[in-house]
Design a protein around this nucleic acid. Sequence first.
DNA 1: CACGTCCG
DNA 2: AGCATGAA
DNA 3: TTCATGCTATCGGACGTG
Length: 318
Amino acid sequence: MSNDDIASVLQETADLLELTGGNEYRARAFSRAARSLSGLDDAVADRLEAGTLVDINGIGDAMADHVADILHGGSFELRDELHSAVPPGLMDVMQVQGLGTKRTRRLWTELDVTSLDELEQAAEEDRITTLDGFGPKTQQNILDNLRQLRRYESKWRLADAWAATQSFLDRVQSLEGVDRAAITGALRRQRATVEQAEVLVATSKPEGVHDRLASHLDDPSQTDAGLAGHLAEGVPVQVHVAAPNRFGTAWWRTTGSSEHCTAVEDREGAPGDHKTEAALYRAVGLPVVPPVLREGQGEVEAGAADQLPSLLSTDDLD
DNA sequence: CACGTCCG
DNA sequence: AGCATGAA
DNA sequence: TTCATGCTATCGGACGTG
């Protein structure tokens, strides 16, 4: 449990307090405590141990107790109480840009909006403008921002998914039977957002590898080409398993995009088994196409004409 | 223009 | 809720 | 040291509303 994790529980409590119409100054106290903790250099757990938590601005005896509870069980009494007093969907409503605790509370109490769906419906039926202080622009902004939010729900930012996957890889690579493990899929293509992480594992003796991999995943399940589950950080992950002698082909195939793969296959048909991507591209008469370019945007034609753009790399920095 | 609300 | 201050 | 009391609570900019 990182400092930021603890801080977000406190901030959530502040929001819940305002959402339920509680004392706004009490809510601010939780906000301030959250801010102090997220900007703290040392680990909160250490501070708690040393008893120096109360030295921090905005943290007194009561708040320190709450923090201890959070560290121990992920939550604390007040927060649990407030949580059960608020419809679960209301927290989603607050994620809409332009909706804070005040407006969300009014939508809830005056229009019975308790979820994104109900919010959308209210806006479409022009009911939001019936509220004092909510005009046509506000209603339209709500609708726009709600749809914007929908486009990114179940999407992970590249950097977050990448970091989570990397720490999974670090553990997986040393597993018995794992010759090699690599990031693949949209994540390898460095898409700005990804729906899931994908990892390719090469193994020469598949027996038992599935189980060992599964033990590092949350809610693991068997799939056609390997297994699926969630990383500790909550990112959905697809683990593909392949024999080493066709690692290159599997890596290429799982990296995609499907448009890129189709474009390659349109030249020479489906590639055979290759150990490396370099061998695969050589076999189809193309230079190795960097993963970021494999989007089916003409990179195959460009490669065939030896016209691939040269990408910037960290080496280009002074 | 004054006020409330949201955001960072 | 935190914090400062003063009393028990 | 503990307890009781009273005072305080981030802030500036942007935007929409009436």
